[in-house]
């Protein structure tokens, strides 16, 4: 029972500290609004994402098209809204995949310890040395530009640091009284890991997951920018920035608006992650 009370205090304290951090709070609000806009896109987008206004191609910002149109006369605001859906979806789903792999790997390694642990962490060390962006490009080439595959591939790459963080946390908890008590009561290893150890790793896991989302979004944008990710007429921020870079000489707005929103999003997520770290683990700073 004591455990429960102190836990809820930890979260309340963390929330208080987070609220005091202006940058992190601004980041959180921006991300929240962005998610809301992405969810509501089908209802609020002014046009269809592939609607082409033939009479108004490559026109600058105007009353009908707030952020201008591209060379096919498609509304940039609409395409950015739809693009945010893909970019955020990749960001969150791939992070979730990374989270599941990393947390399980780290918990098992940390809890079992000994040889299993050192073997598992050796594998993680070894995988750090592999140039994954190249392998992901390869994967997209070999198996086609498949969105689900991209989620899985990016997630399968980004779990390494998560595994290290969780493993360090679990290793330090493995010999604490509440784990020993659970062992003495005959609780199975699996439920010790899931019910007792996992909840205690949540703080660092949440922090690192928040910091993983921008990395994943960046990877997706890289791929789409190279032409190996999301394909037109679908839209993602990486793809829009690519289109913008191609036609920036005639239509600067096609580059400037998506690039700005993408950068602000990355900023916000990073500030939020940093703020969460300070809030959840005041000692680390």
């Amino acid at each position: 029972m004591n455990e429960l009370v102190s836990t809820s205090n930890l979260w309340r304290d963390a929330l208080r500290r987070l609220k005091a951090n202006r940058l992190a709070l601004a980041g959180a609000i921006f991300v929240f609004v962005l998610i809301l806009l992405a969810l509501l896109t089908p209802f609020i987008a002014p046009y269809e994402y592939d609607f082409q206004n033939r009479g108004l191609s490559s026109s600058g910002p105007s009353l009908n098209h707030w952020l201008g149109t591209d060379y096919l006369g498609r509304d940039l605001l609409t395409r950015m809204l739809y693009g945010s859906r893909i970019s955020l979806l990749v960001g969150f789903v791939a992070t979730f995949v990374a989270l599941i792999i990393g947390v399980s790997w780290g918990t098992v390694a940390g809890y079992l310890g000994g040889r299993v642990d050192s073997l598992m962490m050796r594998i993680v060390d070894a995988l750090y040395g592999i140039p994954f962006i190249i392998l992901i490009i390869l994967l997209m080439v070999v198996f086609g530009r498949n969105l689900v595959l991209m989620f899985l591939a990016i997630g399968a790459v980004e779990w390494l640091t998560m595994a290290r963080i969780v493993r360090a946390q679990v290793t330090s908890l493995r010999r604490t009284e509440f784990v020993l008590a659970a062992q003495a009561m005959g609780v199975s290893s699996i439920s010790i890991m899931t019910r007792h150890l996992f909840p205690n790793t949540l703080g660092p896991v949440i922090v690192y997951a928040t910091l993983t989302v921008p990395q994943v979004m960046l990877l997706e944008a890289f791929l789409s920018f190279l032409g190996l990710g999301v394909q037109a007429p679908m839209s993602s921020w990486g793809l829009l920035i690519r289109d913008g870079a191609v036609s920036m000489e005639e239509s600067w707005w096609l580059l400037v608006f998506p690039a700005t929103v993408f950068s602000i999003t990355l900023f916000s997520l990073n500030f939020l992650g940093d703020g969460l770290r300070d809030a959840l683990d005041p000692r680390s700073n």
Partner: peptide, 22 residues
Amino acid sequence: SMAGICIPSIVLGPLLSLVFGI
């Protein structure tokens, strides 16, 4: 430097060449 870390090359590169090149 915080800005430098957050702004990706796919944003920085085209923007730089838009401003300084064009």
